[in-house]
């Protein structure tokens, strides 16, 4: 079986700063990490692989600039068997539609898979749209907010999964293939690759495909192929620092009480 995990390299949002003048993200000096939700998705794929009789090949695929190779190398060290980077200048500036289109072309060239994993959302763009849009392109069903795969039965061609809905968790059964958008459960401990795994990863295949490899016209990709246009960005309006109180607990409580009364959340 072939598992395909879509992974994105993202700036560590803990460290992100916005240039107040230009209203854009300052990338310099901000460490790049493997999107945490994707790291979980890959770990989930690995866990399923270990529990299966069939031989499973896990491919990690990413669209991004050349340095996104680092994130793929991390995936190989964690346990993916193959990495594919889709990288070309014309892929730049893509909205989620063009991103999922590019990934779709990558899947086509690769020859498809039996199960697809994406993260629930990327911690930079935060749209959570790439997984479901990709499923539409592949003419497959998608399942979002998947916390776990409970059972997978390739012979009968289905899996069951635990999914979060607005009303709590449900158990679903889906035909294979399907695109899963995976959400990190609270008790997840990421697998930290050791030196041996990192060394071993160096021998695993890591390919880069550009626009010529994927085919199609340039207008279908990147900024040109995008329907959503970001026309401006700015830092969130800061409320300005609020009032700060340091002193005896009793007075602190009184301060809070006064504000509660002002806000009308408790009776006078």
């Amino acid at each position: 079986m072939d598992f395909l995990v879509f992974i994105k390299q993202v700036p560590d949002t803990d460290e992100v700063k916005v240039d107040e003048e230009s209203g854009t993200i300052i990338r310099e000096g901000v460490p790049s990490i493997l999107n945490p939700f994707d790291e979980y998705a890959l770990n989930l794929a690995l866990r399923l692989k270990e529990g299966m009789e069939d031989e499973v090949n896990i491919t990690a695929m990413s669209m991004g600039p050349p340095q996104a190779k680092d994130a793929l190398k991390k995936c190989l060290a964690i346990g993916a068997d193959r990495g594919i980077l889709l990288s070309d200048k014309v892929f730049g500036g893509a909205d989620t539609w063009a991103t999922s289109f590019t990934l779709f072309k990558g899947v086509e060239k690769m020859g498809g898979a039996d199960l697809y994993f994406s993260g629930q959302e990327a911690t930079d763009g935060n749209t959570a749209q790439v997984g479901p849009e990709l499923a539409s392109h592949l003419n497959l069903s998608s399942m979002t907010y998947v916390e776990d795969v409970l059972d997978i039965n390739p012979k009968e061609g289905y899996l069951t999964a635990k999914k979060e809905t607005d009303e709590g968790f449900i158990k679903l059964k889906s035909e294979l293939p399907v695109v899963l958008s995976c959400m990190t459960p609270p008790d997840f401990e990421p697998k930290i690759p050791g030196v041996k795994e990192i060394m071993k990863a160096k021998n695993k295949p890591l390919d880069t495909w550009n626009h010529d490899d994927l085919g199609g016209t340039e207008e279908e990709y990147g900024l040109e192929g995008s329907e959503s246009q970001v026309i401006s960005t700015y830092p969130p309006p800061s409320k300005g620092p609020g009032e700060k109180f340091e002193g005896p607990a009793e007075e602190g409580a009184e301060k809070i009480f006064a504000l509660l009364k002002d806000e009308g959340v408790c009776d006078d």
């Binding site: 700036p11 949002t13 992100v16 700063k17 916005v18 209203g23 854009t24 993200i25 911690t123 930079d124 763009g125 935060n126 749209t127 329907e227 959503s228 246009q229 970001v230 026309i231 401006s232 960005t233 700015y234 830092p235 969130p236």
Partner: peptide, 15 residues
């Protein structure tokens, strides 16, 4: 909001 709330974006879909 994007980038975990660190940035606000204005977006149009003209076409």
């Amino acid at each position: 909001p994007a980038f975990g709330g660190n940035l606000i974006a204005e977006i149009v879909c003209p076409n």
